[in-house]
Structures are given as structure tokens and as C-alpha cells.
Design a protein around this nucleic acid. Structure first.
Length: 199
DNA sequence: CCCCAGATTGTCT
DNA sequence: GACAATCTGGGGA
């Protein structure tokens, strides 16, 4: 099993800043999914920010609904929704009633890659987690894991500090797949990382 | 209840 | 690059 001894869980205070800031700070952090007898780990390499105000592309833009309830709650919780045949994973940021969030668009597979292959029904490592729907499939994430506290030690889904401190350059572009607010440059990824969804 | 858009992906041209 | 697959949430009647 992968050694997580030096990977501390990010505290709730980490998520108290705005989505644009946290989207960049989450790059390089570890997404850790605990299963019955296995553990899945990926390094976050691509994110998008969805702002709490003035962002027509954000699900929270037109107010609270049953689906978006968790966005209006405290930070450090997962927001997982379904889109077509897939799911997307977000992390809620900012204080209560400020519904900002960060979409995790891609991770670099760390472990257990064989299990990810089984969940994805595909062999190519580069295709396992290089997209929001793909990584949810590889990590067995569905709406059952919506509103999961990713700052809690016992959670089945957590985000942790990575041991390595090698910081790569961050690239900023416009967001992918949206029809509104296309011009807002709120997508971030680690430069030259082969597991980014699109260069 | 009906309608339809959608923070995607895989496949085909 | 285009398009279909597939289904849920949200809005309107």
C-alpha cells in the first residue's frame, strides 16, 4: 500500500479562500479515495474555479436548489453531480452562503492503477483520469459521495498535502465545456503534465 | 407532467 | 471536428 505517512489532510481553513485561489493551490495535492480493502490516490493536475458571485456558469448562480445545497454550506465538502452518463467532482470553498467551488478536472494516477484500469475498463494509463468524468469513474465516485467531508480523517474521500515540493508552472486558460461565461479564464493546470485533459 | 439543456466521453469521418 | 449516447435537475404549465 502507498505510504501516506507524510501526507497531511488539508484542514478546513485551507478552503476558506476564493475559488480562483484554491483552484491553483489544489494543483499538486493528493486526492485519496478509501475503499474496503484498497486505496486510490491521484495527484491533482487540472482544476477549474466556479465563483460564488458574478459567474453565470456556476451551478449556484441562480440560487440554491436541492442539487446545489452543499455549495451553500461550509467549505471542505465534496460536490458531486451527474452529467450525461458521468459524474464530476468539486470541492466547496469559501464560508457558508458563499457558494464557490473548484472542479477537479484531472489527476495523475498514483495508486492503485490496476484498480483504476478495472473501473475504467481501459488499459492506457493516460486515459484513466484525464477528465472530470473519467476520474470519477476511475475513483468510483458517484452522488453517494456528495457532501463528503474531505477534511475529515475518517472520510472515504480526502485531499492531502503531497510530500514532494517540486512546484511546476501553472497555466491559466478559459474553462472547458461551458456555454456561459466562456471568456472567464478560470481553468488551471500544471504545465506539460501528460494527464491534463486538453493542452 | 412535459420539455430541454448540460462543468462529458467515445466513436466515426 | 461532428455527433450520439443517456439521464437528471430545473423550470414552466
Amino acid at each position: 500500500m502507498h505510504d501516506l505517512t507524510h501526507s497531511e489532510i488539508l484542514p478546513r481553513t485551507f478552503y476558506l479562500q476564493d475559488a480562483e485561489t484554491i483552484a491553483q493551490q489544489l494543483l499538486g495535492k493528493l486526492l485519496v479515495r478509501r475503499l474496503e480493502n484498497e486505496i486510490l490516490i491521484g495527484k491533482i493536475v487540472e482544476t477549474e474555479a466556479y465563483l460564488s458571485t458574478g459567474d453565470p456558469a456556476a451551478h449556484s448562480y441562480r440560487g440554491m436548489t436541492r442539487r446545489t445545497q452543499v455549495l451553500f454550506g461550509p467549505p471542505g465538502f465534496s460536490y458531486i453531480y451527474s452529467i450525461h452518463r458521468y459524474h464530476c467532482l468539486n470541492v466547496v470553498v469559501e464560508q457558508e452562503n458563499s457558494p464557490g467551488c473548484v472542479l477537479v478536472r484531472a489527476v495523475e494516477p498514483i495508486a492503485d492503477i490496476e484498480l483504476m484500469r478495472r473501473y475504467r475498463q481501459i488499459q492506457d494509463v493516460r486515459q484513466l483520469t484525464n477528465g472530470p468524468g473519467k476520474l470519477c469513474q476511475a475513483f468510483a465516485l458517484s452522488k453517494q459521495l456528495n457532501a463528503c467531508d474531505v477534511t475529515h480523517l475518517d472520510s472515504v474521500l480526502t485531499i492531502r498535502e503531497s510530500g514532494e515540493k517540486v512546484e511546476k508552472k501553472i497555466v491559466r486558460t478559459t474553462r472547458i465545456g461551458i456555454s456561459r461565461a466562456r471568456e472567464m479564464p478560470l481553468r488551471f493546470y500544471l504545465e506539460n503534465n501528460p494527464f491534463v485533459s486538453k493542452q
